[in-house]
Amino acid sequence: MAKVTLFPQACKGMEDCGICALVCPQHLFTSSGEMNEAGYVPTRLTEPEECTGCQSCMLSCPDMAIVVVKEKGEEAS
């Protein structure tokens, strides 16, 4: 299991960027459909429980808008 945190205000949008959707092996990213403060339409996770915790989206996000924390059977602090 992995915990994904999105920062929608930092995201520059699925339409303009969309790198998270390209690199996710599970194809979990889609557009949220709602504009953020900067006017971009940020990304959204469709099925968070399907995330394998590979962290490709986190490392490939140019705007530090995604964090993936792997949970190894214990509560992360």
Binding site: Q9, A10, K12, G13, D16, C17, G18, I19, A38, Y40, L59, S60, C61, P62, D63, M64
Partner: peptide, 14 residues
Amino acid sequence: VKKTTTCPGCGNGI
């Protein structure tokens, strides 16, 4: 600095 200065999808952020 709350946001990166780059265009959407730019590789500089990576």
